[in-house]
């Protein structure tokens, strides 16, 4: 039986890339093997810096978002930037809460969160507080082989 409304499914990287190019033409989006790589600028507010960011995504994995420039810095007197994975990628959502899945378009879901993250990152520098809420990170236990 033909389904008039096909079930929403996981979007492939080519489909994600096509959507990204369509809605976010200022981003340079390409597909390299199983990976989608998209680079562009996000300026959360007019007072903010315009950050060059990179999204790397592979179906079945968590989208990785890195800030290429200006480089993220730690606040004076602190040893880490809040809400990051290994001080490298941005922690944009809480995976167990199903806030994101591969059925969603990266541009429309992940990118606005990047803008919001960068906004709160700047406010953290300005005020010393992370005003964007979220889960307090749990210190990671050292991995053992």
């Amino acid at each position: 039986m033909a389904n008039k409304y096909p079930r929403k499914g996981i979007l492939g990287v080519r489909e994600q890339a096509a959507r990204m190019r369509c809605s976010f033409s200022a981003f340079r989006t390409r597909v390299k093997g199983a990976w989608l790589i998209s680079v562009g600028r996000v300026q959360p507010s007019t007072l903010s810096a315009a950050y060059k960011i990179e999204i790397r995504y592979k179906v079945g994995e968590r989208p990785e978002v890195r800030v290429l420039e200006p480089r993220l810095t730690c606040r004076e007197g602190e040893d880490r930037i809040p809400h990051m994975y290994d001080q490298e990628c941005l922690c944009l959502y809480f995976p167990p809460a199903n806030e994101w899945s591969g059925e969603r378009s990266l541009g429309h879901s992940i990118l606005p969160w990047v803008s919001l993250w960068l906004y709160y990152y700047e406010l953290w520098h300005a005020t010393g507080e992370w005003l964007g809420g979220g889960h307090e990170p749990v210190p990671r236990k050292p991995l053992r082989n």
Partner: peptide, 10 residues
């Protein structure tokens, strides 16, 4: 739209 999210960290 900025969808609801919860900033997380490791």
């Amino acid at each position: 739209k900025v969808r609801p999210n919860t900033f997380y960290g490791e």
